[in-house]
Nucleic acid binder design. Structure first.
Lengths: 214, 214
DNA sequence: TAGATTGTTAATCGATTAACAATC
DNA sequence: TAGATTGTTAATCGATTAACAATC
């Protein structure tokens, strides 16, 4: 766990996938694996596997391969999944609700500590471990609780205002499901955008390509 | 709209984003835009904008720029958003429901024609234009209706079986929210994976990087 | 020791950016 | 015509793959 020097984003974005495959192998009690075998399972090249792992230092052993459980733990550490970043859910509609119920945030480095919603009819509902609060309580809540990140599940038209409020409250990290372009206005933020419709449009394009190939 | 010769995936995956920005400009009644200006708004290089658009043929006019509405329409055509691919939703839990309610499939080249669920208590519910059906009806439904794609919103453990059934029914295109690795078993499929937890893990990593930069 | 497999360097490939001639 | 901006070629940069010496 050394050898840092800013790893490229291409590598980082592959780590979760390694982590998933290694977790599965670990559950299946597989003890060791070679870069060749792992590459085969994951449908990538063995070279890439070794290059990727070596960005962080040598986890393997020549002539033997990698210890699945150790490698899994190393990637877990690199990604920081043992953290417990405090996150709030902003917008508890269908989508926000699904997210909150669907994911095990603790395994992903987060802890969901609050949810906020404009629709009064939803305020007071409980959602897993949290209770849905009136959006008006956002400021007081954030002053009483340390918040590391916000999960944005609101429509684009509400995003501009909400961002201003969240930014004022010192929140700089966002998991953004809205189509609002956060970084263009707030450059000192960390944003992971999830644009579901973009991937569906890509699928649309690829369906036709696939048909044409026949 | 010519000059094809297999466009690289890097370009294709940028098209939805161009499409979104152009749609917005179009709504704001902006008539023309230069690659420089568009690049500025989108935070990319003007070179990239021009290279990307030129993969498909010259939409611009020297000394003038690009017509926003025309360019938007061109990208719409390239992506094939005027299609009406018939899709079914497999798994109508929190997540599937949110997806179905959240997105305007018609604008994205699809038409949702059915939803299937194992949980009997949900069968019969209506969801936008569709009615939730018992998963047991999947085969009969797919034989009576042409289905181009399946949106997979089921847990990983159910995915293997379900994929086998869908594949048998001739479905080859998937929007996959499960962590099941479709292409490794079914190589003649078109799959867009959406791994939400992967992006959250990446955010987790980036939060720490951000903190360290201070 | 022999065999296997890593860690790492070098070669290749593809994607991005820069530059500028063509042209509206 | 002069100015602006594209379309396109060439240069650069980064990421991926191949190769192999190091070593368990």
């Amino acid at each position: 766990m050394s050898k840092n020097d800013s790893i490229s984003m291409s590598v980082i974005r592959r780590l979760p996938r390694y982590y998933r495959f290694l977790s599965e192998l670990d559950e299946q009690k597989v003890e060791r694996i070679s870069s060749t075998k792992l590459a085969q399972i994951m449908n990538v090249t063995a070279s890439q596997v070794r290059q990727d792992f070596n960005c962080f230092g040598g986890f393997g052993q020549q002539g033997y391969g990698y210890s699945v459980s150790q490698l899994r733990r190393e990637i877990q550490n690199i990604l920081g999944l043992n953290n417990n970043y405090k996150a709030i859910l902003v917008g508890v509609g269908n989508f926000g609700t699904a997210i909150a119920k669907h994911l095990d945030f603790h395994k992903l480095g987060f802890s969901l500590i609050g949810g906020f919603e404009t629709d009064r009819s939803k305020v007071g509902e409980s959602l897993g471990s949290i209770t849905v609060r009136d959006e008006a309580e956002l400021e007081s809540f954030c002053r009483e609780n340390h918040v590391d990140a916000a999960f944005l599940c609101i429509p684009k038209q509400n995003a501009e205002n909400m961002l201003e409020r969240l930014y004022q409250l010192g929140i700089r990290c966002f998991w953004n499901f809205s189509h609002y372009d956060i970084t263009s206005k707030y450059s000192d933020t960390v944003v992971e955008n999830v644009h579901l419709s973009d991937t569906l449009m890509t699928l649309c394009y690829r369906i036709r390509q696939h048909e044409e190939d026949e």
